[in-house]
Design a protein around this nucleic acid. Sequence first.
RNA 1: GGCCCCUUCGUCUAGCCUGGUCCAGGACACUAGGUUUUCAUCCUAGUAACACGGGUUCAAAUCCCGUAGGGGUCACCA
Length: 491
Amino acid sequence: MPASPPPVVTRFAPSPTGELHVGGARTALFSWAYARRHGGQFLLRFEDTDQKRSSKQAEQNILRDLHWLGLTGDNEGEGIPRQSERLDLYHAALAKLKDAGHTYEDNGAVRFKMGQDVSFTDAVYGDVTVPGADLEDFVIQKADGFPTFHLAVVVDDADMHVTHVIRGQEHLANTPKHAALYDALGKPRPVWCHTPSIMNPDGSKMSKRDKAKAARKAAQDATLSQVQDVDQADLAAFLSKDNDSNDIAAAIATQLGLQLPEINVADFQHSGYTPAVLLNYLALLGWNPGDDVERFDLDFLAQHFDFDRIGKSNSKFDRDKLAAFSQDTILKLSPEQWATNLQAHFKDRFPAYVEKLGANFPVFAAAYQERSKTLNDPSVLGRFFVEAPTQYNAKAVKKNLNKNEGEGLKNLQSLRDLLAQQTDWTAQPLHAVIDGAWEALGGKNMGALAQPLRVALTGAAVSPEIGPTLEILGQTETLARIDACLLHCGS
RNA sequence: GGCCCCUUCGUCUAGCCUGGUCCAGGACACUAGGUUUUCAUCCUAGUAACACGGGUUCAAAUCCCGUAGGGGUCACCA
């Protein structure tokens, strides 16, 4: 009887040196999906052999973001392994390699001898052969006694019975080393699957340093010499590229009113994208199910994901398309669900709106369901609901108020009187009032009334439907804004 | 620079393995028109790509070679 193949085991093994970025998230997603597809296990592990840069905080943040995405490791229950806590394992492996004559010391570090040609098969890039002459002896144990990444991954993956290693393409060149290590250790090699990189629209690699880069450039362009809450020395260090602190980048962005590029999963959450949308878009960056299917969920991926449809070339991250996906899912939500989601997000991000809008929040939400690409959009588009206009767009005033000898202003004045008498301040009747007034005026276009009103209420000519807009604002505020506008714009 | 990898509309991609059904399909973006009280939604239509040069073949986006461009890697980082 032939031995049945070992159960599929994949893993996501980030180094806890920073936030989870989209590239990592996609790797995790692919690993998760492959394991699910084959009824296997998806494991997590922290690769913290870099003692200087690793932190527990980073571990927590990565886990938080993974969970937000809906990806959980099957070994979280028993505790996620940390390489720093498995030194015995590496030392044992090292001893074995040493005994077999595979290693030699080099200034306190230990190197592994290469020399033979190495061949392996990658699930995406196919057969790879590297001549021994191109392979250098490499360090497997640092002078501090810690294993290097190369030794640790191999030992851990073997120990955890990982059958499929899915990781970024930058590891392709490391793979001959890993293959040689598996062989020397007498362990079966896993299937390697290297994924292409995710790039910025300008073609550069999307990296966690992009935020620092953008902030630095903006600070230099603005010849910024001081930043609130940032120490002078730290700022100087940041500006001279001595560090890439995201905190400093964020402080600069706040001071300059700059929008930093979204790179990390948390950035996209912050910007008002939902996990389902991010995951869907990310999956499509480098993989596709064939056919012309683009919109799908985790279940679909768990049923259809496979390596053979992963592309070989790098792809650029297209925010417009992400936004379109997001808008699409918002449109498909029931009004109740949308209002619930939006309120939860606003409580967290824009509490002032929740406070000010009060019971009107669902009306506010409904007004912006068709107008939002993200959960953040209503905070920008609907700012006038919480802040009265302080100035009026000149073009809008000219077109909607002043034109035809102040026709708009006159209409606004008569509308004000009608609205002042209104008792039922809800969208439907309010709409009816304007509708009636328009007919009474014998106008051919309701805009003759609605547009002057919009200018008065928002300072410009854009708002949701006029009925809900009035309802949300409330009678007192509406009248006050009309008066302010008449005073300001009426000559 | 050495070694390795990649190259279809502006972008993500289908098609390539198993040449003909591809004067190349979908999506996002863009443009035009329609619906509409503004914006948006929605509907309709449209622009737009096989990097280049050689082969092989009756026939090439698909196979082969070369060139160019892009990416990765060459750490006691992962």
